[in-house]
Every structure is written in structure tokens, then in C-alpha cells.
């Protein structure tokens, strides 16, 4: 088949032929950037030409020129290597980290839900701080986007958690690096707050607009490593008359968030409320937004009360087994639940 039969503009056809690409088979094994260089055209134009060419040449191309058609495909082997080298975001509670396989993972959408007062926002703030732990201390050294739909984000509280985090890092420094004073980084708790991009959302239209805008924003701020939405459900629980519309809007949002996580190698954490569900004569607690929404996240963690202790339970995960672990919300943030740092109870 000849290049001249392709439905592309005459100037592009001319450039192709003059650069020596006369047959479709010669286009099958060339990468878009290579073609762009050869033809002196922008790369997106080259991608377009390759797309047209691969469509024209039909299914037989898949065998000999697969990397052009399935651009972005990876082998499972590569993915395993990538996953092993990636760093998890710690929750500051080692019991919780253990059942999560190290912490919150990048490239995944993690949904955390629980009853009011269980500590969803606290986990959100803790993650926004922990993402900034520098690589020297085993962190990611990134920035956070915090999308607040409920107005529960308290700057004083974020500062408190940041101060505790900075103290812990100093302690770690003095324990492990006694001799090398050169590593002594000056950690300012206020600097933690500078690296949290805060959006306050007041309606669901704003929520959708911000999520659409995120891709552009993250593209401009490549060091953003986590997006926290607190909570995903609040604005979608007002009387939506058209439930089909709600489902459509929500699944569109979920797709965007998954794509964002994958494309920019960042973690997306969605906090969700709980609701009661009527099932065969009894009421059960489930996460809000319905059954179709439960497909939207890669991992689902449910927070619940067990006696007087807070517990987290892995409800859904492709890689981790179901397990639960206790955790505590302390003055310093999320910590292990043990006798010496139990929640202060006012009697």
C-alpha cells in the first residue's frame, strides 16, 4: 500500500514521500518523535499521521509494529520492577502501614471511608504532611493538593501535625547520623504548609471543574505527588433528582482521577462518608454514593470503632489481603494505638 492513498493533507503527504516514507510498512516501525524530526513537523502531527496509517493498514499491523499501535503498553515484568522501586507514603502509623504493604501507593486511587469523627480528615492532613518527608528520610519529598469540600481543614491542626513530623525527623537525624552534621537539614514546620495547595470547593459544579483542571495544574507543578479530596461525596448527597446523571458525573470523575494518578505517578486519596443501606430487612452501613461508585477506586479502606479503639479494615484491594489494624488519632497526628498514646478522654 502506498502513502499517497492516506487521508492526510497534501503537504504532509509531500513531506512523507520526500523524507523517504513511501510505503505504509516503512511507517509501521517508526516512533512519533523520530518521524517528527525527519519531517520537521510537531510531534502531535506525527502521532496523527501514524494513527491514520495504522488504521488504514488494519489488523495485520498489530503483529509486526505493535509498539506504534499500542503506544504506552508495558510488559508485566517492567511494571513489577517499577512497583518495587516506588516508595509508599507512610501514614505515620506502622500497624496501618503494615496491612497496606508499606503505606499509600502512588498511581492508585485509594478510598478511605468511615463514620463522622473517626479521623478521615486527620488521615488526610497527615498524608498531606507526610508526602513532604524528604528522600533522605525515606519519603517522597513531594507536594500535596488538598481539595476541601466540607471546610474541615484546620490550618492550626495541619501546623501541629507538621511540627510533630519535623520533630520526629530531627530525632531520626540525631539517632542515625551522629557523626555527619552536614546532613542536618533545617526543617521549618511552616514550610510544610507552603507545600500544600489548598482548594475550597462549595458546590458540585466547582468540584467537577477543579478535577478537570487538575491535569493542567499538575502538569505545571510536577512535584505534586498526592491529591487528597475531603470528601468526594458531600456535594453529591444533596437531593440529586436525576440519579442516572449523578452516576454519570461520578464515573466521569473517577476516570479522570485514575488517569491522573497513572499519568503523573501520584497517589489519589478520596475520603468518603458512610450511609445506611437497606438490605433484606436490616440496615447496614456502607460507604456513600452507591454500588457503581465502589468500582471507582483501586483500594478501599473502611475505618470503624471497635470498643474504644479506632480500626482500619481493607475492604477492597487488588494486591493486599483483607486485614484490619488499630490506629490512634493523637495530638501529634495519626500514630500506633498503644497504651502510652491513647486518646485523651475528658471525663
Amino acid at each position: 500500500m502506498e502513502v499517497s492513498s492516506l487521508p492526510i493533507s497534501a503537504s504532509q503527504r509531500g513531506k512523507l514521500i520526500s523524507a523517504g516514507y513511501s510505503s505504509l510498512s516503512s511507517l509501521s516501525s517508526v516512533s512519533p518523535s523520530h518521524l517528527a524530526r525527519d519531517l520537521k513537523i510537531p510531534e502531535n502531527e506525527a502521532v496523527e499521521i501514524l494513527k491514520v496509517a495504522s488504521r488504514r493498514s488494519g489488523s495485520d499491523k498489530i503483529e509486526n509494529g505493535s509498539h506504534v499501535i499500542m503506544n504506552g503498553a508495558q510488559t508485566a515484568w517492567d511494571m513489577l520492577h517499577e512497583e518495587e522501586s516506588s516508595i509508599c507514603i507512610t501514614t505515620s502509623c506502622s500497624d496501618l502501614d503494615e496491612i497496606l504493604g508499606g503505606g499509600i501507593r502512588s498511581k492508585e486511587v485509594t478510598e478511605i471511608g468511615g463514620v463522622p469523627g473517626i479521623g478521615k480528615t486527620q488521615i488526610g492532613i497527615q498524608l498531606a504532611v507526610n508526602i513532604q518527608i524528604p528522600a533522605d528520610y525515606g519519603g517522597l519529598g513531594g507536594k500535596a493538593i488538598y481539595i476541601d469540600t466540607e471546610g474541615s481543614f484546620m490550618v492550626e491542626r495541619a501546623l501541629q501535625i507538621a511540627e510533630a513530623c519535623a520533630e520526629d525527623m530531627l530525632e531520626y537525624n540525631s539517632l542515625l547520623r551522629k557523626d555527619s552534621q552536614s546532613h542536618q537539614a533545617n526543617i521549618e514546620p511552616k514550610a510544610f504548609l507552603d507545600n500544600i495547595f489548598y482548594f475550597r470547593i462549595c458546590t458540585y459544579t466547582e468540584q467537577i471543574a477543579v478535577i478537570n483542571y487538575l491535569e493542567k495544574f499538575v502538569f505545571e507543578h510536577k512535584d505534586v505527588k498526592i491529591v487528597i479530596i475531603d470528601s468526594i461525596s458531600f456535594h453529591f448527597r444533596q437531593d440529586f433528582e436525576d440519579m442516572a446523571l449523578r452516576t454519570r458525573l461520578l464515573s466521569g470523575m473517577a476516570l479522570k482521577l485514575m488517569k491522573l494518578a497513572k499519568k503523573f505517578n501520584l497517589a489519589v486519596v478520596l475520603l468518603n462518608q458512610v450511609t445506611t443501606k437497606y438490605n433484606e430487612g436490616s440496615f447496614q452501613l456502607t460507604l456513600a454514593l452507591g454500588d457503581s461508585w465502589s468500582h471507582a477506586s483501586t483500594n478501599r479502606i473502611i475505618l470503624y470503632w471497635n470498643g474504644n479503639a479506632r480500626y482500619a479494615y481493607i475492604d477492597k484491594s487488588p494486591s493486599m489481603r483483607s486485614a484490619s489494624s488499630p490506629y490512634a488519632v493523637t495530638g501529634r497526628g495519626i500514630r500506633n494505638s498503644s497504651s502510652n498514646c491513647k486518646r485523651v478522654k475528658l471525663m
Binding site: 489548598y198 482548594f199 470547593i201 466547582e206 471543574a209 477543579v210 483542571y213 495544574f217
Partner: peptide, 10 residues
């Protein structure tokens, strides 16, 4: 959407 961004924090 840009207008919603409050930076630095409130």
C-alpha cells in the same frame, strides 16, 4: 478553577 486556588493557605 484557577480562582479557587488559595495559596498560601488561609
Amino acid at each position: 478553577p484557577e480562582d479557587l486556588l488559595r495559596h498560601p493557605l488561609p
